[in-house]
Amino acid sequence: MPQHQPSQLAALGQIWVEAWNARDLERVLSLYDDAAVMTSDRIPALGFGADGTVRGKDALRAYWSKALGLIPNLHFSLIDVYVSPDSLVVFYENERGKRICEYLRVNDAGLIVQGSANHLVE
């Protein structure tokens, strides 16, 4: 299991938010491993992964590119970053005032290998 310093993981959470707010998809993707897996209940609505999962960086690029096109005012306001030895949770509020927790597991190289967007049930 990778062991990362809490400060490194907290910094990754900050960088992740900054990359999204810059709408810099390639910068976001640079934080992910080529074989990364992303799960979200929003994925099927955009026509990707009926099971809510996107696998691999190319599929992530296609999914997020479509999502960014639909959300021109995307903005994440960081609330907190929680860390464990091999993962972090980025707790943020989006441009619509919705609070989201993004679970991000990292590998030994510090790249994200698994992400899960967790939304409140409304």
Rank of each mutant, 00 (worst) to 15 (best):
D24E: 02
D33V: 04
S116T: 09
W20E: 06
E26T: 08
L104Q: 05
L12M: 09
L68P: 10
L31D: 11
G97S: 04
L88F: 07
F48E: 13
L70K: 14
D51V: 04
I112M: 10
P6Y: 10
A19M: 04
A62C: 03
C101I: 04
D58M: 12
L88V: 02
G13Y: 09
L60Y: 07
E102V: 00
R42C: 04
Q3K: 13
R23M: 07
I71K: 05
E26W: 13
G49K: 15
L29F: 10
S40F: 08
G52Y: 06
N107G: 02
P72A: 13
Y103H: 10
F91N: 06
E122F: 05
E18C: 01
A35C: 08
L29C: 07
P85Q: 10
D41H: 07
G52S: 11
A67Q: 11
Q14E: 09
L74K: 13
A67I: 01
F76V: 00
N73A: 07
N94L: 12
R105H: 05
S30W: 02
D41W: 01
G52R: 08
V113D: 00
E26C: 04
V90P: 00
V28H: 15
R27C: 00
Q8K: 15
V121C: 03
L78P: 05
A50R: 14
L31P: 12
R99Y: 09
T39M: 07
G49R: 15
G110Y: 04
E122A: 04
P44N: 05
P44F: 09
M1T: 14
C101G: 15
R105E: 01
T53Q: 12
N21C: 08
S7W: 07
S87D: 00
A109C: 05
L68F: 15
A50M: 07
G97T: 10
I71P: 08
D108T: 06
Q8W: 09
V81D: 08
I71W: 13
I43M: 08
K98C: 06
G115S: 09
A117P: 00
V90I: 06
E95W: 02
F91P: 00
I43W: 11
G49C: 14
L111P: 04
R27N: 03
D33L: 02
G47D: 12
V54R: 12
L60W: 03
R61N: 03
Q3L: 05
D24N: 14
H119R: 10
V37I: 11
V89F: 05
Q8C: 07
L25K: 13
W64E: 09
S7R: 15
I100M: 01
D34T: 12
S65L: 03
D58H: 12
N21P: 02
G69Q: 03
D86E: 00
R42G: 05
A59R: 12
L25H: 13
M1R: 14
P2D: 08
I112H: 05
A67R: 13
N118L: 03
R96E: 02
A50I: 11
L78H: 11
I15G: 01
T39E: 11
H119S: 03
V83D: 05
G47A: 15
W64Y: 13
